[in-house]
Each structure stands twice: as C-alpha cells, then as structure tokens.
Design a protein around this nucleic acid. Structure first.
Lengths: 158, 158
DNA sequence: GTTGAAAGATGAGCTTT
DNA sequence: AAAGCTCATCTTTCAAC
C-alpha cells in the first residue's frame, strides 16, 4: 500500500460539503454532487476508510456554554529535545482546557489554544497546570478578544 | 426572552458526546445518556435551536488532501481603529487559505491560521493576498511543524 | 443505477413526577 | 406543567441485484 490516493473532482466536492455540513443526508449530498445515493455513499465510506475524512464533530457556541476566555499561549521549553517534548506532551494531553497544541518554528516552541470560564479560571489553569510542567521555561499569553473567522472548510490545493 | 438557558447534566453529556462524535445516531446517543430516543432527540433539537450547538463538520486529514503547510501568522495593522479593522476583515474573509482570524491582545493585533499546499503556495498567499491588504503593517509567521493535540471537545466550566 | 429490507428518526398521545 | 415513555409512521441507509 502506497500513500497515493486518487481523488477526483467529485470526491473533492463531497469533502467540501461534508466539512461545511457534516450532517447532510446521503440523499441530499448525492443530489448536490449529481450522483445517485448508492455510489455517493460508497465514496463517502471510502473516504472515511482511507482516513481522508477523520471524524465528525458538533461545534458549540463557547459563549453560550459559559466559556468566556480563549487564548493563544506561546510556550518555550527548557531545551528542546525528545525527552523534554515527550514530558511536555504527556502533561499537556491531560489538560482539558488546552484544546490545541502545535509544535512551531519561531521564537516560541509550542503554540497552545486554551479555553476557560473566565480570567480567574484561566489563571488557575496556567498556574496550577501548565506552569507546573517541569520542562516549561516561559509562557506568553495572547487573549482572544473576538474571533472573526473560523472556517471548518480546508481549501483543496489545486 | 432572556439569555439564560437552563442546561442540566444530561444536556452537558449530550454536548460532550456530540462534540466528540457528531455522527452518532440518536438511538446510540439515547443509550449513552440513559434516556429513550424521543426525549433525547427533543433535547438535541432544543440545543440546536438555542444555538448552543451551532453546526456539524467533517474533519479531514490535511496531509492526505495535500495540505503540507499550516502556520500561525501574527498580523499588526497600521493603526487599530474601526475602519481599518473592517477593511482588514473584509479582505481576510475572501482568502480561503486563512481558515481562522482572531483579534487578540499582545504585541500583534490579529492571529491567523493559514493553510497551503507547500511553502511556495504559502508564500504566494502571503505576498499576493495578505500583504496586499492596505492596512496591514507587519506579519510574523510561525510554521506548524506538527500538531500534537487538536481536541474538538470544549470542556464545560463547572 | 435501482430496488427493497432493515435501521433510525420523529411526531402523537399516554404516563409519571 | 414538565419531562419521559411507547408506539406508529416516515425517512434514510445500505446491501443485493
């Protein structure tokens, strides 16, 4: 098995539609792409089996569930080596409030996205959980004032 | 109508499950939360109508669709005022490769998440599209080397 | 691509608290 | 009254042709 997956224009359309509406029925999806339901479903299943479509998720309104603080946090480690990164990761994965963690180039080593009820709760997460990780050197927080775009549709490279 | 929504423990469970699996059937969801299908569905519908659940999305494997470059970009504007922000936003919304745009505190004014096929395509997006926006002052890119956590489940504040 | 059986969704009316 | 349950009907899925 090689890593090359043949994806035609129809598959692209399917992926685009399912990204913007993960709950569309197969019947409506098939209409939109101009195929009958059976082959449409077959394509979707194949995309899921290939791992090209990974999963489906509901998106919630954070304000409405009481999440008032969202931040980006730039994290530098005390020396970047495999052991330190492993240690950091193991701990980060345990912290529910850290919803994203990316290893990046640039002045910081990692970029986190962190959510919390309010500034107090946020401070508590950062002090009690993130700062407590031994290998963490410095932290720089940027509070999100508002989110102006949050597209769930990844554009296809042509 | 006031803004207060009563959400009990069952609703929370529903929201948590639908965030991690947006395509679970109502039958299975009802099992998990310990209700019969009808009231379960009723609750889900109410959460959707309240806007607490905003939407459903398929998540794709970016590598497999040929998206090789993901970055965070810190953007500073030439003076931060309503007009400049409006101008910036209108243009940013048109750029498909910019999948997120957040207004933040800190040294930069905005944080973008940008995706592209490769470094060349990325450079092209940044030079031809983002840099071209009149009000943009400075840009600072951080390339994502790897994503170590990307949770779609927002933890409920208690 | 079409058809049909099985699974799931969903509304009406009944029961419980 | 508010929430949940059961049943009957309609829709969707999905495998066989």
């Amino acid at each position: 098995m090689n890593g090359i997956l043949k994806i035609d224009q129809t598959d692209r359309k399917i992926i685009e539609i399912l990204q913007s509406n993960g709950k569309i029925t197969n019947a409506k999806l098939s209409e939109k792409i101009g195929l009958s339901p059976a082959p449409t479903l077959e394509r979707v299943k194949k995309l899921e089996q290939n791992g090209l479509i990974e999963s489906y998720h509901a998106q919630v309104d954070m304000d409405k569930i009481g999440v008032g603080v969202k931040t980006f946090v730039k994290v530098s480690l005390k020396g970047i080596n495999k052991t330190n990164i492993e240690t950091f990761l193991d701990k980060i994965k345990e912290i529910d409030e850290v919803i994203e963690c990316h290893h990046t180039t640039g002045s910081g080593d990692f970029m986190l996205k962190v959510v919390a009820k309010d500034i107090n709760a946020y401070q508590k997460v950062m002090l009690d959980k993130v700062s407590e990780i031994e290998v963490v050197d410095s932290l720089q927080s940027m509070v999100i004032l508002s989110t102006l775009k949050n597209s769930k549709v990844i554009p296809f490279p042509h």
